[in-house]
Design a protein around this nucleic acid. Structure first.
Lengths: 334, 334
DNA sequence: TTGTAGGCGTTATCAA
DNA sequence: TTGATAACGCCTACAA
């Protein structure tokens, strides 16, 4: 381990005190030009790199923002993470990503780890941590939570309108003439899944279509569960001409199940997904789905965190979901 | 900012010196049982959390491993990252993920950031950093590079046999009776793309099929480029009954292009991809592709890093690619 | 077995 | 505008 260049050494070689070097480095105070230049020369010559640890220990700030995702490599979070990176870039703060895998225990450990690493702020994406814990964390460090709405912390939470998205999706199918519309929902205990189910029901009700529980199947947001659910639907007693699937990944699975059953999409069955994953415009046929402005969400949360860090008030812009009509839906054959 | 509980305070309240507490915490030396218990009681009562920064500054180790990916949210890296997490878990070391987005400049900054954060070791996934830079980094900190083979650093590098994978894929098509086999390659300057092209050519040669440059199109590893390349192929003068695509994402695009052109997969055109992304078993039809043991790669690299950290020699197990035959390929219609 | 003292590399405070 | 000097919180000889 070669000794790294320390500030003290720079100071010595430049013939000034360490404090002066520090001031130049941080722009904390004015320094006479000649000294400044001398120091900067030494800085360059020695290729000085400040020690982040020491700096953080002394200053109490690490210039890092913890980001707790559920699955760091899930396509669903991809754009959001990019948005966060972008929103933070140039601010001096850097994101540190961790994942909780939808397990409260893992999330807890991840948050503790982040706090132990003294992140200056935290962005939480979804997850199953109890509200209480989030409030507790928020008391210690600026916090922004996406996909959640924690009582007493609303201004720092951003939830998408899942109800509306589901409503739009279902309404789209209704407008195409479909009546028997199945639904493959997500994990029932999951708030998003509940809201999407509610939106689906509401749209049916508004169209005077009777809700049929036999046309609803549970999944777990993964492809395989969508496959299974759709298979069951096809094999069930009820017939249907369209499915609203609670997310794109399950929609992929459902689409394959229909393919296996010899049912064409969209001629025989129309499918609508939710999330608009990057690959959804490349499925065959391209998937009609509900798009969330995931990148903007990331961007907005990063900006909000910076505001909080800056002592300003939280501010999350309203972001809306949107139906993207592609080729997996068509008018019901009469 | 509530004052956090310091080791000094614990020592005071337990009536011992700070060193003693430190020893108990780290198991550095034996401590009389009664004191030990007393201290542990205080530790628990105060809910003491060591300050990682201070600890790192003093000990010179941060117990973290930097992981440089190209796209933190790419499905391609997902399993590998999980493997790394798993391989590191329980060791006391934690991964810190960053992404370079295939831009040398960004990668440089990312590595510098990681080094500035004093990671104890580094895992580099692919990327375009010059070998020289990697050697430079390796001189400072234990390094493992995946998807690269840096001269003088071979023992710490793990590359998959792209040539073999491409050969297997093409051979599979040949065995199905295909002769006019097109290829959609990746970024030509990319080593993986070159090797896959070479494997494709070799398999053709071994099967006494003449190589036809007009049946090869360039892409950039993304879906859209696969779409474009396949479209061009179809519109080109040459006819073909199969395509070997250099990665799954482009294969998705190609598959859609064929769909748009009214060509069926696999009846009219067989497709083989490369990577076996999680969603490739759910495309319609499920994609025949070359699987890399990505999870194991991550696991192995984490274990290798731990060995290096432990002063042992690097050791990366041989890992092999494998053809996964699904439904996007079929015997050529005679 | 235990405590003291010094150091890790910066920043922050206070005089000068 | 500058420089000592003291934190920051912990680890580690070294001495007892």
């Amino acid at each position: 381990m070669e000794k790294s260049v320390t500030l003290a050494r720079v100071a010595r070689e430049a013939g000034v005190s360490a404090s002066t070097v520090s001031r130049i480095l941080n722009g904390t105070a004015n320094v006479r030009d000649e000294k400044k230049e001398a120091v900067e020369r030494v800085l360059a010559r020695l290729n000085y790199r400040p020690n982040v640890l020491a700096r953080s220990l002394a200053s109490g700030r690490t210039m890092s923002v913890g980001v707790l995702t559920q699955d760091i490599s899930s396509p669903f979070y991809g754009d959001t993470l990019r948005g966060i990176e972008q929103g933070l870039s140039g601010s001096g703060y850097h994101p540190i990503f961790t994942s909780g895998h939808w397990q409260a225990q893992e999330e807890l450990e991840a948050v503790d780890l982040l706090l132990a690493r003294k992140v200056d702020a935290l962005i939480v994406l979804g997850g199953v941590l109890p509200d209480e814990k989030l409030r507790e964390v928020a008391a210690k460090v600026p916090l922004v939570a996406l996909g959640r709405s924690v009582p007493d912390l609303e201004s720092q939470c951003l939830r998408l309108d899942n109800f509306k998205g589901a409503y739009l999706a279902t309404q789209h199918l209704v407008e195409l003439g479909h009546r028997a519309i199945a639904h493959i929902m997500g994990v029932p205990s999951h708030r998003d899944a509940q809201d999407r189910l509610a939106g689906y029901k509401a749209a049916l009700a508004d169209a005077r279509v009777e809700f049929d529980p036999d046309l609803v199947r549970e999944g777990d947001f993964m492809e395989a569960s969508g496959f299974l659910a759709a298979t069951r639907l096809v094999e069930g007693l009820r017939t249907f001409s369209a499915i609203f699937v609670a997310n794109d990944q399950m929609a992929y699975g459902a689409r394959l199940a229909l393919f296996r059953k010899g049912l064409r999409v969209p001629e025989d069955v129309s499918i609508v997904g939710f999330d608009d994953l990057p690959s959804s415009s490349f499925t065959t046929p391209p998937l009609t789905t509900v798009a969330q402005p995931t990148y903007d969400i990331g961007l907005a949360s990063a900006e909000c965190v910076l505001r909080l860090l800056n002592g300003e008030e939280a501010a999350l812009p309203p972001l809306d979901v949107q139906l993207v009509v592609r080729e997996s839906t068509t008018r019901r054959r009469s």
